[in-house]
Write a protein that binds this DNA or RNA. Structure first.
Lengths: 105, 105
DNA sequence: GATAAGCGCAACTTCACGGTTGCGTGTGCT
DNA sequence: AGCACACGCAACCGTGAAGTTGCGCTTATC
């Protein structure tokens, strides 16, 4: 499997429903499409698509058990996204530091 | 101005071009629409729209100086996004810890 | 074996988004 | 005054994403 490009991760995080799914998954450790659809205002198919998107970003792993498919969280790619954000902030802070130092002189 | 809902931030981060703009901005401290358009394969108007989106997420601040508009980075909302990500990871780790402890017993 | 649950696939609709083009306006330079 | 630059606004287009519905398959339950 491709190493979950940061692009797919941010794309997955862009959708409110998908974020909701991730939060649910963080506190529930496993979930099914129909289970989620029950607590969401959308159809099972829609949920399924979202789960597919999350799976594409490697944020979720699917496991078929009998007639149901169990999804569970896979938090590692979140680290990549966080790292990207941090890198932008870090570079900015560094530049800020330089400016400050030059002003103090 | 509304306190930059996390939704707008993630939405802004979802676009590769917008991420590029943010990175450029992190290392350059100010930029104009036409300036950016020169180094991107898209028109000035497109860049302008992206900057508007970033501005809507409170990720950049615009300042009109003479006949040009200067945009600069505003990293604070990035913190909110990072915090969201971290919260999901944290809850997950906590649950993992519980599971581990119960297994050790 | 029949029925129901849970899922995947595919077609279709809708709509927001990224992009372009054209035009008008303010600002600066000569 | 005249020209060129940088911008904003608005209209328009094409595509992809989110959602629905319908159908068929497998897996359980009775």
């Amino acid at each position: 499997m491709a190493p979950a490009p940061v692009d797919a991760v941010f794309n997955a995080l862009a959708d409110p429903t998908r974020r909701h799914v991730l939060q649910a998954l963080a506190s529930r450790d496993s979930v099914t499409a129909t289970g989620l659809a029950a607590e969401l205002p959308i159809s099972r198919q829609a949920v399924s698509k979202h789960l597919a998107a999350l799976s594409g970003a490697d944020l979720v792993s699917s496991d078929r058990v009998g007639r149901e498919t169990i999804y569970s969280l896979r938090p590692e790619p979140l680290g990549d996204a966080a790292k990207w954000i941090e890198s932008v902030g870090a570079e900015w802070d560094q530049r800020l530091g330089k400016l400050k130092r030059s002003l103090e002189r």
